[in-house]
């Protein structure tokens, strides 16, 4: 199975420049992998004010469970929230914080 090379900071830079894509083939593979992390480990984006404010949360394990919010992470730009999700999931997948 494909594994992310944590030294590929060029892919991180490419994503941060253009989070919504389209991406290079290599970055597309990375994005796919980060989107396939186990559900219970996924950090997701939650819109708190329509079109204006977002935060991050941990996906609850079961239906009906409350969201676990990252209260200290508040974004007024959606792409900034996406970059943070990418950063956190990259670290979860590789053990290395891409910064």
């Amino acid at each position: 199975m494909y594994k992310i090379d944590p030294t590929r900071t060029d892919l991180v830079e490419e994503f941060y420049k253009n989070p919504s894509g389209p991406h290079s083939l290599e970055l597309a593979r990375v994005v796919n992998l980060l989107r396939l992390l186990p559900m219970e480990e996924r950090i997701i984006i939650v819109c708190t004010k329509p079109h204006a404010e977002w935060t991050l949360a941990k996906m609850p394990k079961a239906r009906g469970d409350r969201m676990e919010y990252y209260d200290d992470l508040v974004f007024d730009d959606y792409d900034a929230a996406v970059r943070k999700v990418f950063q956190i999931r990259w670290q979860a997948a590789t053990g290395v914080d891409p910064g």
């Binding site: 894509g21 989107r35 396939l36 997701i44 984006i45 939650v46 819109c47 999700v85």
Partner: peptide, 11 residues
């Protein structure tokens, strides 16, 4: 990976 997006939940 089906929707090509990062899960984003509305209120």
């Amino acid at each position: 990976v089906a929707e090509c997006y990062w899960t984003t939940m509305q209120p």
